[in-house]
């Protein structure tokens, strides 16, 4: 492993000035569970790591009137043990309880999980279907980017060199809505998803679908939304036929590939199966009597 310096700025201003000073020779580090592995595997060679851990007010879960704000330095373990997440953002809860191990969740942050932009990032699909936005800030100011527009390619996002991911802004799910995430993996822990499917449904009183969101992980070079399937579901009632068709459409929207972790045909097939299952769970969670 290459030697590097490790800096611990204590304010965002200090972070920005260090980022400016070191430019592409620096790498931001949050929990470090991804960055340290990349360093050890000799995939990245920064001269300097800039740690965000000592910057105050970066880890929080704020339950506001119509929004939930999650600071990017919030760990998965903090999300897992938060009743706000467990009760209101159920899809995200599903994702964080099955990510890595307790040891990993104790340090890995949600900001790191998203900013790394791995196609398999477990929190990406839930955040996508919860209509999350990312608050990006730099010394010049801040901007909000919807997560659906955030990812560009594996490991690549719309973030500029001088920006950091500050928080996620999630509209509070309406009444009669529910969300869920299904991680398909070989093992029940310490695993990456072969495929991840998140769905959120907002229902009308008559049990027709008011709004649908489908997020797919490891189904394309980045986490994606299945827009066509969402559109198809809107206004429909959740019958077996409708679910099957939604699954078919979502599956066609995906572009999975063969890898040692799973074959493309299997992933495509599982999108069909899991769309059905996850939608059913989301519907149940919407609690329509």
């Amino acid at each position: 492993m290459k030697k590097f310096d490790y800096l611990k700025p204590t304010s965002l201003d200090e972070v920005f000035s260090l980022m400016e000073k070191f430019g592409s020779n620096a790498k931001l580090i949050a929990g470090g569970t991804d960055v340290m592995v990349l360093l050890k595997r000799k995939r990245i060679f920064p001269d300097v790591l800039i740690s965000l851990r000592s910057v105050p007010n970066m880890a929080y879960i704020k339950d506001e009137k119509d929004k939930i704000r999650i600071g990017s330095m919030t760990t998965h373990r903090e999300l897992e043990t938060s009743t706000v997440i467990k009760e209101k953002l159920t899809a995200l809860y599903d994702a964080v309880i099955n990510l890595g191990s307790v040891q990993i969740r104790n340090v890995a942050t949600i900001g790191g999980n998203i900013a790394n932009a791995a196609p398999s990032a477990d929190t990406a699909c839930p955040l996508l279907v919860l209509d999350a936005s990312c608050l990006l800030i730099s010394s010049k100011g801040e901007r909000e980017v919807e997560l659906k527009d955030f990812f560009i390619a594996p490991g690549e996002t719309v973030m500029k060199q001088d920006e950091i991911l500050k928080e996620f802004i999630i509209p509070k799910p309406s009444k009669l809505s529910g969300s869920a995430y299904w991680k398909l993996s070989r093992r029940k822990a310490m695993d990456l998803p072969i495929l991840g499917v998140a769905i959120s449904l907002a229902m009308n009183e008559d049990k027709s679908i008011k709004k649908a969101r489908i997020g797919l992980g490891v189904a394309a070079p980045t986490p994606i939304r299945a827009f066509k399937a969402e559109e198809f579901l809107t206004g429909k009632f959740l019958t077996d036929e409708v679910l099957a068709e939604a699954g078919n459409i979502a599956s066609k929207e995906a572009s999975p590939r063969d890898s040692i972790r799973g074959e493309a045909w299997y992933r495509r097939e599982m999108i069909r199966v899991l769309t059905k299952r996850v939608a059913t769970i989301s519907f149940k969670r919407a609690n329509i009597v």
Binding site: K8, T33, M36, S51, G100, Q103, N106
Partner: peptide, 28 residues
């Protein structure tokens, strides 16, 4: 050495962590 086996687990501020991935500078 990659946080995948847990043999290096220690407790930092009450939490179990993989010490192989824990940057030494954060121990301060």
């Amino acid at each position: 050495g990659k946080g995948e086996c847990g043999a290096c687990t220690v407790i930092v501020d009450g939490k179990a962590i993989n010490s192989c991935l824990f940057p030494v500078m954060e121990v301060e």
